[in-house]
Design a protein around this nucleic acid. Structure first.
Lengths: 356, 356
DNA sequence: TTGAAAGCGCTAACAC
DNA sequence: GTGTTAGCGCTTTCAA
């Protein structure tokens, strides 16, 4: 039910003064005020150690008096670097990416790099438009999460243009492209082993559309491996479209099967929370009648009672690492490299099955 | 409980080839290939209408053959515009800002502007550093949310530098600075009126640190007004530090008072979810024994069962509007203006008090 | 409709 | 340690 609030958009027009670009001080004016050359001023801001102490002081004073701030554009043009990293993510509506972006932003700023953001809304066709946009803005490198790393045209383009990039979350079967992720397969296996250890035997996986996610596929492999290792037959995944608002239809169907599952392993936390909500609204007790496990370990998962059981990815760390790698590539310090970061299993509201 | 996953960080070094910047085609090369002047090529990409059809074709073909992409840096330096808007937000950990950023990003890209992100972690002292960073990156304008719009040194600086900006979420008592927000006071009043209509009389407000949020203050005013209008005495707010992981101590204290509150109005959804979780873990039934209302209307709030009752701010729309206003200012089309957007009340899991 | 030329602010050789 | 100078790639008068 929605009760509407006030229905007017009030717009106040302030003072009529428009914004004109007021002339900013340049290196040239600082130079003449400090009675030194352009080069010296430039050195003060780039390699102060090359400048005599007394000169340094004079320049700094002049700069402060003029309220001088080095113009990044001139610098960019000259060095053909923007000190900007493009970041392309599926959405910020899923907290796992918002958390990652926090890490990205912090790590970039520490290194004096800006980050330019673009989101694709999980639409593979948007990946092309967004990357093109970022490239036009002449970012020095990219951190990106694509739907499917194996068949992304974007990556081919980046390779051809020889622009440094790092994939975040995507995990490729064949190495060759730098990625930062957890070991999705091992992580999924561990989650299933945990459910098995609780006594569950009827375990199914719930996932978004498979063809659009290399990670989901790997997690399904981990699920299958763990099931087989326990002498059980892996079941087909229950597929629920990304961004589904209501999972009940899909759940209905899956729960109709015999033997009925006692535990669901969801390919991400968002899905897990949707599933739990809808199970509860269907009158099924969670975790009493159904244990649900997520994947991502977002902060959202600890806002529930009981806490969501989930495979925790270090999202901020994934972001930080991706930035470190891509900046190293931009600065020519390292060749591309991939990293597999630790995952952990956060145990929250999951119980043994009622019927073991 | 945390069960650790694999404890190794595996790093694969790929092919030894470092990234060198391969020479990109410039306007000059396109010009010579198309046998026209630099100016003509420039016109093709900026004012194609000024160029004869036949010339246009030739230039476009040459550009495509050379895989030419106009270099934004040269353009920037020349026009002293970056086509980048800086966005400064408290955190992405709170979904309300992540949602806003989604709107900001989409609206900016539609207009061919990039957005450069900076987060302050709710630390007012960081506001200065982040804004300085954004300014150094020579963004054309800023969209920002500050802790307290009335006493922010950052805004003074921006005014002095005459760089266009718009505040998002902040709502100032005296106009003069452009803001995009809902009517926080009216919205809070409406939430309280709703609780009153359910029969609640003992209603308290829960908020983060007050001195750090102009919005929270306005919401408290709305609470107070509604209470007085109903002939009830407004109570002091229950203050819970931002980012508190556990609200139980604060809650204990507040619930010790007589008469005990039957409803809590939280100054944002994040807080509301923490409060609900902690109440439940204390054995208090929500909404049975305690009704809780949030503010923000984030998507996170509909991942629970029952859905979180909350004042819904149109966060994406706030972002979109802020971008529209700031870009209009950058392009000199409009003078600064403020907007108050609609709010709505989303009614979810709230009930009449057990003892009315 | 097109071209020539100046120069945005800065860095990095190179010379002193 | 410091200065001189040549552009980085582009837009934009001004003239033709």
């Amino acid at each position: 039910m929605l009760m509407s609030g006030n229905q007017n958009v009030n717009v106040f027009i302030h003072s009529g003064s428009f914004f004109k670009v007021t002339k900013k001080a340049t290196i040239r004016e600082v130079a003449s005020r400090a009675k030194v050359s352009l080069a010296t001023v430039s050195r003060v801001f780039n390699e102060p150690s090359l400048v005599a102490e007394s000169t340094l002081e004079g320049v700094i004073r002049a700069a402060r008096e003029l309220n001088f701030r080095p113009n990044q554009m001139g610098r960019n043009l000259r060095t053909s670097r923007t000190r900007n990293i493009g970041v392309m993510l599926p959405t910020l509506g899923n907290m796992v990416f918002a958390e990652c972006l926090q890490g990205v932003e912090a790590a970039a700023r520490e290194r004096q790099y800006g980050i330019v953001l673009g989101t694709t809304g999980y639409r593979p066709e948007e990946e092309d438009a967004v990357s093109e946009f970022l490239l036009r803005h002449r970012v020095d490198g990219l951190v990106l999460t694509v739907a499917n790393g194996a068949k992304s045209k974007v990556l081919d383009k980046l390779d051809k243009e020889r622009i440094p990039y790092v994939l975040a979350y995507n995990q490729l079967s064949r190495p060759g492209r730098p990625t930062v992720s957890v070991d999705n397969r091992a992580a999924a296996r561990q989650a299933i082993e945990y459910l098995l250890s609780l006594g569950h035997r009827q375990i199914r996986m719930v996932a978004g559309s498979f063809k659009d996610s290399d990670r989901a596929k790997l997690r399904y492999k981990g699920y299958s491996e763990a099931m087989r290792a326990a002498g059980l037959a892996p079941q087909l995944p229950i597929e629920i479209p990304f961004l589904a608002v209501d999972a009940r239809v899909h759940l209905m169907e899956a729960l109709g099967t015999r033997p009925r599952p006692t535990a669901l392993f969801c390919s991400n936390d968002y899905l897990a929370m949707v599933v739990i909500r809808d199970l509860v609204s269907m009158g099924i007790r969670v975790p009493g009648e159904m244990s649900v496990v997520g994947f991502d370990g977002t902060q959202a998962g600890i806002l529930t009672q009981p806490v969501l059981t989930s495979v925790v990815q270090p999202s901020q760390e994934i972001g930080r690492t991706a930035i470190a790698v891509v900046i190293a590539m931009v600065e020519g310090e390292r060749s591309p490299s991939s990293a597999i970061l630790h995952h952990t299993l956060r145990v929250g509201g999951t119980t043994a099955p009622v019927v073991a």
